[in-house]
């Protein structure tokens, strides 16, 4: 464990909590892409199956359970409890265009051809593009609530910090996972446009305007 990975995990946890609280407190999921949240739930489910097979640490296990629990709770709030506020018309990204290529890539490029490893690889590739429906939805509506931009900032920051963690681990531990690094780079690059807007427009107006 190093400072980049710890702050990365905390940033990820913050994002998940921010979103869950926003929906719960405002009793509305307006402006939130349910499809992205379903993809995140799938990412955590396929990645954390090792909860059933191996124990690494209390931190590792508890964080995984929190991530999975919050992901499914968020999906539940969007599609069941506050489904009347779900903006299905703007959440129109065709996720099959993500899941199918990612699934194919996971079968073709992985570290070893075992079910657990392919599912883990699938979750790594899927996570790198899971935010696209959300970014697409914001570009369609042309705006996002301030709290949603904070959610996206923390979510984007987490993987950027993980990139620094991988540099650290390569230098100090000789650890190198090209699949995670490649997907992490793609994931972080997807947020660059948003990061720029978040920093330049930060705090100016209540509704953040996102250029399409």
């Amino acid at each position: 464990m190093n400072v980049f990975r710890l702050t990365g995990d905390l940033s990820h946890l913050a994002a998940i909590i921010i979103l869950l609280l926003k929906i719960w407190k405002s009793r509305s999921c307006a402006g939130i892409s349910g499809k992205s949240q379903i993809l995140f739930a799938v990412v955590f489910t396929t990645r954390y199956l090792d909860l059933l097979t191996s124990f690494i640490s209390l931190y590792n296990t508890s964080m995984k359970l929190i991530y999975i629990g919050c992901a499914y709770a968020t999906v539940y709030l969007i599609y069941v409890k506050f489904r009347a506020t779900y903006d299905g018309n703007h959440d129109s990204f065709r996720v099959e265009f993500l899941v199918v290529p990612v699934g194919g890539l996971a079968v073709l490029i992985n570290h070893n051809f075992s079910l657990m490893e392919i599912l883990w690889t699938f979750s790594i590739y899927l996570e790198s593009v899971a935010i696209l429906p959300q970014l697409f939805m914001i570009s369609k509506t042309g705006e996002a609530e301030t709290i949603t931009t904070h959610y996206l900032f923390c979510l984007g920051l987490y993987r950027a910090l993980y990139l620094l963690n991988w540099i650290w681990r390569y230098y100090f531990e000789g650890f190198l996972d090209m699949i995670a690094i490649f997907a992490g780079l793609v994931q972080t690059v997807l947020y660059c446009d948003f990061f720029y807007l978040y920093v330049t427009k930060g705090g100016k107006d209540r509704k953040k305007v996102m250029l399409p």
């Binding site: 090792d50 690494i56 964080m63 190198l176 996972d177």
Partner: peptide, 10 residues
């Protein structure tokens, strides 16, 4: 350089 077999990252 090796890819650590046990996945210890979230």
């Amino acid at each position: 350089v090796f890819q650590q077999m046990e996945k210890d990252e979230l």
